[in-house]
């Protein structure tokens, strides 16, 4: 089913006196420092775009927890993203809740929604699950437009929300502040995901992915864990949606189409299924590559995008993470054989 790639399970050849995990830690710190410095040197619009990259990365990580770690498919994560976004928008707009407080609420609501969707989805395997979630994605904009909920959702018009100012009179622009806010959320959620994957629960989820029958025989409550995986996955994507609403200052039904769900999937595969850092690469891909395609040809932008996508899959069938691992493995072999 899914590509079996786990960043934590790589053999550790030494390169330049450091093991692979050590290189990883070094790289993580490096990326973090660069991440902290960037907003001080680039335009506000670029800061805004990079914030979106991080938001997509969180959403993709959510999908990854489901697909990469637990082996379940979803083409419907735009629905959870939408639930997260609308939760925040409604709380801020109708109830005046501060934006930071809406994130946990959005997360919990999505956790419940994901768990509940995961329960019936338990009976569905692979393709059938993909179909059910595909339908969910297509139906989401329609449900959001429903006149029944218009009092809260604002119907087709959606909801406009106010961009928050930096607190404590920090000398930052709104965009810069939201960037740092998102970065903080991202670091917490990525760290939590890494913890989850290497925990007992993570092992159980992986066991279910690799051999459901054996997992059951070992006494793992597969039903509970699979629903839970769905819930946690939805939580991540929902928090991303909430952040997205705050940063874009606007939610409307047509922002949450099937297309968004597909983008998450593309980001996950391009970044590398099951890879945590890969989610960031995936986020960057779905943020920037469509723009790039549009620069190549305005009329045929999506055709160009499609061609790029096919090339990426041909060159890196296991995504960026798999590609990096492959290259790192080669380098390690060359280095060690030269000794």
């Amino acid at each position: 089913m899914a590509a079996r790639e786990d960043i934590a399970e790589v053999a550790a050849p030494r390169v330049g006196g450091l093991t692979f995990p050590a290189w990883q830690r070094l790289l993580t710190v490096g990326v973090l420092i660069v991440g902290l410095a960037i907003p001080l040197f680039v335009r506000n619009f670029t800061v805004f775009q990079l914030t979106l990259v991080m938001i997509y990365a969180i959403a993709i990580l959510g999908l990854n927890l489901l697909t990469g770690i637990n082996g379940q498919f979803s083409l419907g994560h735009s629905a959870f993203y939408a639930i997260g976004a609308y939760t925040t928008a409604i709380l801020m707009d109708r109830f005046g809740v501060p934006y930071a407080l809406t994130l946990p609420v959005a997360g919990v609501i999505c956790l419940i929604a994901g768990f509940l969707f995961g329960l019936p989805a338990l009976r569905l395997e692979g393709l059938y699950l993909a179909l059910a979630t595909f339908a969910l994605a297509v139906a989401t904009p329609q449900l959001l437009k429903l006149s029944l909920f218009e009092r809260w959702t604002g119907g087709v018009q959606g909801i406009v929300i106010v961009k928050p100012d930096p607190p404590f009179g920090l000398p930052l622009s709104q965009d810069q502040w939201l960037y740092y806010f998102t970065l903080a959320v991202l670091v917490v959620m990525f760290a939590a995901a890494a913890r989850l994957i290497s925990s007992r629960t993570g092992r159980a989820l992986k066991a279910i992915r690799d051999n459901p029958l054996a997992a059951k025989a070992m006494g793992i409550d597969t039903a509970l864990y699979k629903s839970l995986a769905f819930g946690v996955s939805a939580l991540y994507t929902g928090v991303a949606g909430a952040l997205g609403a705050i940063v874009i200052q606007f939610v409307a039904p047509d922002s949450f189409t099937f297309f968004l769900a597909v983008s998450f999937l593309v980001g996950m595969v391009v970044g590398g299924v099951g890879s945590i850092p890969g989610a960031l690469i995936g986020g960057a891909f779905i943020m920037f590559v469509p723009n790039l395609a549009e620069q190549v040809s305005k009329g045929l932008a999506w055709a160009v995008y499609g061609v790029i996508l096919i090339l990426v899959i041909y060159v890196m069938p296991t995504g960026a993470a798999g590609f990096v691992r492959l290259v790192a493995g080669r380098v390690a072999r060359v280095v060690s054989s030269n000794r």
């Binding site: 590509a3 999937l265 391009v270 299924v273 069938p317």
Partner: peptide, 10 residues
């Protein structure tokens, strides 16, 4: 993997 196929479909 199947997911790569799905991306090519997309």
């Amino acid at each position: 993997p199947v997911l790569s196929h799905i991306v090519v479909f997309i």
